[in-house]
Amino acid sequence: MDERIAAAAELFKVLSSPVRLRVVHELTEGPRSVAELAAVVEASPTLMSQHLRVLRMAGLVDAEHEGRQRLYRIADEHVTHIVQDAVRHAAED
């Protein structure tokens, strides 16, 4: 199998979780903390941290400390376009 196709399949596998897809969608608005993301997605901070770890390991988000909290942001703008296009496509009649 072509390596590019395998990498694309892996990307879609990571984004196949509704929680992770929602997180990436929310991060298109700007950096957020675990607590902010957990509140928006209605998940526990522990569960949110686990999903963020998966997204970080896939290279889709990164984090940096700002004061006492860690803020997560999109690491690859291409992913922003993929997610926004998918959401728009799903909303079409």
Rank of each mutant, 00 (worst) to 15 (best):
R4C: 13
R4A: 06
R4I: 06
I5Y: 04
I5Q: 08
A6H: 12
A6M: 11
A6F: 10
A7V: 04
A7G: 08
A8D: 13
A9W: 13
A9N: 11
E10N: 13
L11R: 05
L11P: 03
F12R: 00
K13M: 13
V14Y: 02
V14T: 02
L15D: 01
L15P: 00
S16R: 10
S16M: 13
S17H: 06
S17E: 01
P18T: 00
P18M: 09
R20W: 13
L21R: 11
R22G: 14
R22N: 10
V24R: 07
V24N: 11
H25F: 06
E26Y: 15
E26F: 15
E26A: 15
L27S: 02
T28A: 10
E29L: 12
E29W: 10
G30A: 09
G30T: 12
P31W: 13
S33R: 07
S33D: 03
V34Y: 03
V34R: 12
A35H: 08
A35L: 08
L37H: 09
A38H: 00
A38C: 01
V40I: 10
E42S: 11
E42Q: 12
E42P: 00
S44C: 04
S44A: 14
P45L: 02
P45V: 03
T46H: 03
T46L: 06
T46F: 04
L47W: 03
S49G: 15
Q50L: 02
Q50K: 02
H51Y: 14
L52K: 02
L52T: 10
R53P: 04
R53S: 15
V54H: 05
V54T: 07
L55S: 13
M57W: 11
M57K: 12
M57P: 02
G59Y: 09
L60T: 00
L60Y: 10
V61W: 14
V61K: 05
A63M: 06
E64D: 05
H65G: 06
E66R: 15
G67T: 04
G67Q: 05
G67N: 05
R68K: 05
R68G: 06
Q69P: 00
R70D: 07
R70Q: 13
R70Y: 03
R70E: 08
L71N: 01
L71M: 11
Y72P: 02
R73E: 00
A75K: 08
A75E: 02
D76T: 04
D76E: 11
E77I: 03
E77V: 09
H78P: 05
V79Y: 14
V83L: 10
V83Q: 09
V83C: 15
Q84L: 12
Q84T: 14
D85N: 13
D85R: 14
D85Y: 15
A86N: 04
H89V: 13
H89N: 03
H89R: 05
A90M: 13
E92P: 07
D93E: 12
D93F: 03
